[in-house]
Design a protein around this nucleic acid. Sequence first.
DNA 1: TATTTAATTAATCGTATGATTAAATAAGTC
DNA 2: GACTTATTTAATCATACGATTAATTAAATA
Lengths: 213, 213
Amino acid sequence: MNTNTRKQPGRPPAGADQTVRRQLLEAARGLFAKQGYDAVSIREVAEAAQVNPAMIHYYFGSKQGLYEAMLTDTFTPLIERLSSVLAAADDPSALRNFFNLYMHTLGANPWMPPLILREVVAEGGRLRGWFIQQFATKGGGMLTRLIEREQTAGRIRADADPSLTALSMVSLAVFPFVAMPVTREVFGMRVKTDYLDRLIAHTERVFLQGVSP
Amino acid sequence: MNTNTRKQPGRPPAGADQTVRRQLLEAARGLFAKQGYDAVSIREVAEAAQVNPAMIHYYFGSKQGLYEAMLTDTFTPLIERLSSVLAAADDPSALRNFFNLYMHTLGANPWMPPLILREVVAEGGRLRGWFIQQFATKGGGMLTRLIEREQTAGRIRADADPSLTALSMVSLAVFPFVAMPVTREVFGMRVKTDYLDRLIAHTERVFLQGVSP
DNA sequence: TATTTAATTAATCGTATGATTAAATAAGTC
DNA sequence: GACTTATTTAATCATACGATTAATTAAATA
């Protein structure tokens, strides 16, 4: 990918993209997602990005700064896309659309599930508060309201608790991805090209049928 | 709890229980579950257990030794109980029994979900291999076979993929617990005494109805 | 051309950590 | 009572880590 000569000291030409900054963000995302914050040293990140360790402090101030920059850089687009889908939730296929976008996004970005696991779900996750504000209070509340709307429309049985129903939906949609490496071995699943589609179709049906009147 | 005088140097009386060892295991379980392996220093564990840091090496050889001892001490009983329930899976309520034991156990031992998250589900979890061998290959295979049996009995629709069905079941049963601190805030759930029972009843119904013919 | 600014490098600092050791204490063993 | 064994303590070691600094390079600016 990087066929140019190695970065050399000295002021870069005008209009140059900050490739070093981006290399650091990407290396950090991969390593932090796989090993966790504490287990990764800034020296490792620098080596993976093929830059000098001091560059981390030059661009991000500290290890913590690099980490937080990587997190916002990673999750902001996801949050925005999900929110927009949930916002346009008037049509009857909104639930199905949400399922598809959510699961396809997770499937297409393999580093997302482990990061969400560490930063949102796990105890002491640094993104939990931010995530709850950004997505949950907004998106989660919207998800609950979407389910209530589906209930009044008669597509979801009326005696189901909306919050618990939303939780079931998220469970079905998220867990298969965060647990993918385990479930593969446990249930002997092969990674075929159509696995993701079969998983989504199956999950969608289990949920919709499970909460139908 | 510990009203006796502080432990003093010198050989203990015969038949004395190794309280220091047990205190270390319990302190380690709480801290490691909450903060993760790297974030916890042996000095913290020793302080929480009110013993000298060198005791960790005396009893367990190393931090790693303490950690692994704590993990086996914690998960061996769980594995055994789940396996035994899955083994006696001839009666028609086996699925319901599994749901109840599984979710009640997780609900009754709050340190289990975060530990499972870190050690089994998360990338690089130290227990993953062992867990897959112990529970998954055995228990997971049994779970899949149980579902196949339910299919031939006509209680689960025949066109459902057994592996994906097992995955849906585990998703519904596990995720609410590992994500409990988040979902509480996201969906505005209050921790009432009957929350666990309502959660189990709801989840059980969503699954059974979702996979019914 | 002279000066300033942006980027990169190598070297180093202070600290927290896991680990180890030798000494001290007290019960068991003969 | 001599001495062996089990447990606890305090002190110390080596190291890896995050962080900082001063020097170096080259483009921008004037």
